[in-house]
Design a protein around this nucleic acid. Structure first.
Length: 486
RNA sequence: GGCGCUAUGGUCUAGUGGUUAGGACGGGUGAUUCUCAGUCAUCAAACCGGGGUUCGACUCCCCGUAGCGCUGCCA
């Protein structure tokens, strides 16, 4: 129900991370919802870095956050705006509040505040302004507290929920300027959201309890109150706030593992939002078109890495060959399987090799292990492969026979190889699998992989013959067997 | 403890005052006369509890319970 239509071109939202860590799954999802909302309404999406905590903020973090957002494709229209650069602005408003006696200096030492009810009762609120002024002139350290109204209640309409209401006497006289002069979150976020003319504050619902404080500030400062939208949090499998101990949570880690940004976007969009009961895969334009805050869930969602991996596999198969190959090749060169100068102009062989295992990948980082035997001179045999080769005493003569026939082959293509296999099994009274499995194991060292005929063609006649020969000539390959597939 | 938010299969969710409560991941089974994967088909699996309101509640209201969040000179 949209009773009051917002003129599309006036919508303005922001993503405001603090540079105290990497961009994580939850932050990325918040950024995404803001971005989708902005793009859907042809509004403005701005990026703000909330670096008022000087102790914990680091340059490397905001730099990385920007990089990760760019990788995800969440481009911003304004910013990044750094709050640290805007200290004067916050000071000015804080002074205004002092002037109007809506805030007061607090001379309590930080440690003094042990008692939970202390903030509410801070005696500094009683100090006369003149007296406070002289204490400051005398060099006493002071923070600034906002004088909260202790009667009535503060409520707001959240776009995702109904009406949220707080009793004002529950809300303490909170600090707005630290004794080191830096503003705190509640002050800086309020001033910036107001000054940047943010129309919709879309953020995690861990901020619900901060909202009444900010509303009080909007009112005290005479700012127009924006629309609040609190989206549910993302939890780990144990239903606690998602954190490092749940494994990879940083967007950058997923990038390294070989996730496609569009897969992450698609998965993240579905964490707390759904369009209907039939569609799971959404292109970016579709997400922009179909996204709406009305359909955002109220319930915290548990992050499921398995489903995201599935989603990535879907996208790996969805993108076109060119795109797939250009994403894939760097993983081969990083693994030392191909040289870097092949990245720009890969050979047809390399392209086909990579394409041959596409359906078997969920992550690009899976690739090297899937194709390494195409590139290394010496292959390693898994235990299973070793078993497949030597379990049947007839296998060795069979492989030898195959070797001879393949050797005579003029055109080494799938069709010709197929014919030879068919002939051989017929003569020996075998099933196709009886031949194929030992051969695959012999030439690749693995029991799984692409179809055997394609695999042989891609390996090339010489290497196939060499590896078969290696088996029936030197049965000591046992020595190089490794533990498991993968 | 106080305050706030939330509650549909294991997970992400759709949905309605009367439905066989739908889809996706994961799991099971089968097909794809070579594996794995992929694809397709198929199966199992849910409305937190108690009171109301109502002819009828998973759906609306209240209470309870549980989970989470806030309760910082963090954001």
């Amino acid at each position: 129900m949209e009773n009051k239509p917002c003129p599309s071109d006036t919508i303005k939202v922001r993503f405001a991370p603090s540079p105290t860590g990497y961009l994580h799954i939850g932050g990325a999802r918040t950024a995404l919802f803001n971005w989708l909302f902005a793009r859907h309404h042809k509004g403005t999406f701005i990026l703000r870095i909330e670096d008022t905590d000087r102790e914990r903020s680091e340059d490397r973090f905001w730099k990385q956050i920007l990089e990760d957002l760019e990788w995800l494709g969440l481009n911003w229209d304004e910013g990044p705006i750094f709050q640290y650069d805007r200290k004067d602005i916050y000071d000015r408003y804080a002074q205004q509040l002092i002037q109007e006696e809506k805030a007061y200096h607090c001379f309590c030492a930080p440690k003094q505040i042990q008692d939970k009810s202390y903030n509410q009762k801070c005696p500094c609120g009683q100090i006369q302004p003149d007296q406070a002024k002289s204490k400051i002139a005398a060099g006493e350290a002071a923070s600034i507290r906002f004088r909260t109204p202790h009667e009535g209640n503060t409520e707001f309409k959240d776009l995702v929920r109904k009406r949220v209401s707080f009793d004002n006497k529950e809300i303490d006289d909170f600090i707005i300027i630290r004794s080191n002069g830096q503003p705190t979150y509640n002050l800086s976020v309020t001033i910036d959201d107001a000054l940047n003319e943010i129309t919709h504050v879309i953020r995690g619902d861990d901020h619900i309890s901060n909202t009444p404080k900010q509303i009080m500030l909007y009112q005290a400062l005479n700012f127009q109150i924006p629309q609040f939208v609190h989206i549910p949090m993302i939890m780990g499998p144990d239903n606690t706030r998602l954190s490092k101990r749940h494994g990879a949570t940083a967007v950058g880690e997923y990038r390294k593992k070989g996730y496609l940004p569009q897969a992450m976007i698609n998965y993240l969009a579905l964490l707390g939002w759904a369009y209907n009961d039939r569609q799971t895969i959404f292109s970016l334009p579709e997400l922009i078109e179909k996204f709406s805050l009305q359909k955002v869930s109220k319930k915290a969602a548990i992050f499921d890495p398995q489903k995201m991996e599935w989603m990535n596999g879907k996208y790996i198969r969805k993108i076109n060959d060119e795109e797939f190959i250009s994403h894939a090749l760097p993983y081969l060169s990083h693994a030392g399987l191909i040289s870097e100068d092949l990245l720009q102009e890969p050979t047809q062989d390399i392209k086909q090799i990579v394409l041959s295992v596409r359906d078997r990948m969920k992550l690009f980082s899976d690739l090297p292990e899937l194709v390494n035997f195409f590139f290394t001179k010496k292959i390693r045999y898994t235990e299973e492969a070793h078993e497949k080769i030597f379990s049947q005493p007839n296998n060795l003569p069979m492989l030898k026979e195959l070797h001879q026939r393949l050797e005579r082959l003029e055109t080494f293509d799938e069709e010709a190889i197929d014919t030879i296999f068919q002939e051989l099994i017929k003569e020996r009274g075998l099933k196709l699998g009886d031949l194929i499995h030992p051969v695959r194991s012999a030439v690749s060292g693995k029991t799984t992989g692409p179809g055997i005929f394609l695999m042989l063609v891609l390996l090339g006649k010489d290497r196939v013959l060499e590896r078969l020969e290696n088996i029936f000539r030197h049965t000591h390959i046992k020595a190089v067997k490794i533990k498991k597939d993968e």
